[in-house]
């Protein structure tokens, strides 16, 4: 990274660098590295511009971080975090001794992957398609409407789903019976729930996610689009060769960002939809819900911190790997 810093002349090289990414290796010119003080001074304005954010994250994220030590202690309220007895990895044990870890990891990761992949596909799809639509009112109204589910709390979503699917009085049960069919007992069938949960998640998050892609399309250079139109490109070709490539960095960034939380589940969604219906746990239990069930009657700050730390560490290494991979393909797309 340091070689970007050499001198202002080189900015030009970097400016047109996008045309010549493949020549990256040859652009590593062996300038003498200037002193740190000089580099800092040269970039004082940019550093100052980052300063509010740096201070912000220092105060709200880094300052309390040493407190994560709580995960290794038997936290005593009257002693404080750092004077509480150190217990090593004991707070991490229960997750590993549960015998459920494989199942929990599998469920958590698979759901997250489904949310990330299907979610982004759907959001991309709607953003691109709506962009092609000419009728302005339709475009606007449909976007607003797609945003509605985002506001419905998980409690209410669970209630809606129950009202649709429950065996005795559900809306769909009524429908199926009036058509002479036999309603399956959805709430006793674990295999149905991956579909239901993924669908509900997509339903909730599509409107929000579409906005990101919409903005990215909007920021796109429309001269290219016009040129393509003049060249006679059809709609499909325009999307395939102009819109999609423009959105590629956004997709990659969103993916990289999401992957760090691959072990972190959406507790509210799962807990409200499934609750303590253990007939569904096989396919619906994620780390958060398991931890909740294990600790709901014994409050333990140290243990919940330990679980969080475990999720973070794994997520961190996955992101490091993914980022290095992306960087290897194209440093421009990497997160850092």
């Amino acid at each position: 990274m340091w070689f970007f810093a050499c001198s202002s002349e080189q900015n030009h090289v970097q400016g047109v660098d996008s045309l010549a990414k493949s020549k990256k290796a040859s652009s590593v010119v062996t300038y003498r590295r200037p002193s740190l003080g000089k580099v800092l001074w040269q970039n004082k304005t940019l550093i100052l511009m980052c300063l509010p954010a740096i201070v912000f994250f220092f105060v709200f994220s880094y300052m309390p971080m040493p407190g994560a030590y709580i995960a290794f202690t038997n936290f005593q309220y009257n002693k404080g975090i750092f004077d509480s007895p150190f217990v090593g990895l004991r707070n991490f044990q229960f997750l590993f001794q549960s015998g459920q870890l494989t199942l929990l990891l599998r469920n958590t990761v698979l759901y997250n992957l489904a949310f990330i992949i299907l979610g982004n596909v759907l959001q991309l799809f709607f953003a691109i398609m709506l962009n092609e639509v000419q009728a302005k009112t339709y475009k606007k109204v449909s976007q607003s409407v797609m945003f509605l589910p985002y506001f419905i709390s998980d409690v209410l979503v669970a209630l809606l789903v129950y009202n649709l699917l429950n065996y005795d009085y559900g809306f769909i049960s009524h429908l199926v019976r009036s058509l002479g069919g036999e309603m399956p007992k959805v709430y006793q069938n674990a295999n149905a729930w991956p579909f239901i949960i993924v669908l509900v998640n997509l339903w909730k998050s599509t409107g929000y996610g579409t906005v990101v892609y919409f903005a990215a399309i909007t920021g796109m250079d429309s001269s290219m689009m016009e040129a393509a139109q003049i060249d006679g490109a059809n709609a499909w070709q325009r999307i395939r060769y102009i819109t999609l490539p423009t959105l590629k960095p956004t997709v990659i960034i969103l993916f990289l960002f999401a992957i760090g939380g691959i072990l972190k589940g959406n507790f509210g969604l799962f807990y409200n939809l499934v609750g303590n219906n253990s007939m569904l746990f096989k396919t619906t239990d994620i780390i958060e819900t398991y931890v909740y069930r294990s600790m709901m009657n014994s409050f333990n700050f140290s243990q919940s911190s330990a679980v969080g730390l475990f999720q973070s560490v794994v997520g961190f290494f996955i992101v490091l790997g993914a980022n290095a991979f992306v960087k290897h393909l194209d440093p421009d797309y990497a997160l850092f």
Binding site: R90, F94, Q97, S98, N276, S278, M279, R293, M295
Partner: peptide
């Protein structure tokens, strides 16, 4: 035995409602 207790808690909450 806190670690075991947490796992028992989970087992109980998994089977007992059923």
């Amino acid at each position: 035995v806190g670690v075991f207790m947490d796992n028992l808690s989970n087992v109980y909450n998994t089977y007992m409602p059923r």
